[in-house]
């Protein structure tokens, strides 16, 4: 459909929408909307508190993130590269979005220590963003000439990526392997390849079926929400930390709600929550 036809259809649909339809929520989505709005408010309040200079609770230590410097240091001492994978999925995946600050951190460290960073990509859009981040990191470290464009590249997707990485691992033998993002069946393959070449491995994902492979196979694993909190942990910025504190507060509220709901359900037999959720 052409742009003009799309616009015409869009306008026609708008004319067809009666006043009764306007500003009404999607059926069954009101409970979800209220939950989203409440969480948004909590995050906003914590951001404002952080901006006002209110003391923020520290994020508990994340050994997986602390180990990044150690792993890059090891690679530097051994004269071997660092391998970094941002997962299988596209740019809209929250896990892909969460990896950008980590890649920037890793690239800055690699640039500073003059350690080669190998960053093959599965998705062309993610590749363009990653390329920009790594270039910028080398520039920030004051060593733009050390950036090798051939070290951040679009490799292929799915099976092509796995075979390519396998070959890369065997030839380059990275001393550190950082897997940060959304992985599928390639998680086990990447972890095993890293293990075979003796790399220190740091794995982070919120893809639950793949978590056991990271926990079992990697030296350090960041589980689900930890990978989202890592950018605040690295940056030590109060505003970013505020959003993580908001997340914890909301989680605590949900925990209380779950306990109250469970007790209520056990005693009364039904809760008012269920009708709210489907409202």
């Amino acid at each position: 459909m052409s742009l003009s036809a799309s616009l015409q259809a869009w306008l026609a649909a708008g004319k067809g929408a009666t006043a009764a339809h306007l500003w009404l929520f999607q059926p069954g989505a009101t409970g979800s909307l209220v939950a989203v709005l409440l969480f948004g408010i909590v995050v906003y309040v914590m951001i404002q508190r952080a901006r006002a200079g209110a003391p923020m609770r520290q994020i508990h230590p994340l050994p997986g993130i602390d180990a990044i410097d150690e792993a890059i240091g090891r690679a530097t001492e051994m004269g071997r590269p660092v391998f970094y994978s941002s997962g299988d999925t596209g740019v809209t995946d929250p896990m892909t979005i969460a990896h950008y600050p980590i890649l920037a951190h890793v690239a800055r460290r690699c640039a500073r220590y003059d350690t080669r960073l190998l960053q093959p990509n599965e998705d062309p859009v993610v590749y363009t963003v990653n390329d920009s981040i790594v270039r910028e990191a080398y520039l920030e470290a004051g060593r733009p000439e050390a950036f090798n464009p051939d070290d951040v590249w679009f490799m292929n997707n799915s099976s092509g990526y796995i075979t390519g990485v396998w070959d890369l691992m065997q030839k380059q033998r990275p001393a550190a392997s950082i897997l940060y993002g959304d992985f599928y069946y390639d998680a086990i393959m990447l972890v095993e390849m890293g293990g075979l070449v003796g790399a220190v491995q740091i794995g982070a994902t919120a893809q639950i079926p793949e978590l056991p492979f990271f926990v079992a196979g990697c030296d350090y694993a960041l589980i689900a929400e930890e990978m989202y909190a890592a950018s605040a942990y690295i940056g030590h910025e109060p505003v970013l930390t505020g959003t993580v504190v908001a997340e914890d507060l909301y989680k605590f509220a949900m925990f209380v709600l779950i306990v109250v709901g469970a007790v209520w359900l056990s005693i009364v037999g039904s809760t008012p929550f269920s009708s709210f959720v489907h409202f």
Binding site: F39, I97, I208, I223, A224, E225, M227, Y228, T243, K251
Partner: peptide, 12 residues
Amino acid sequence: ITLGAYLGAFAT
């Protein structure tokens, strides 16, 4: 884990 992951994704 799912709940934490979704809240983390939403905060991001």
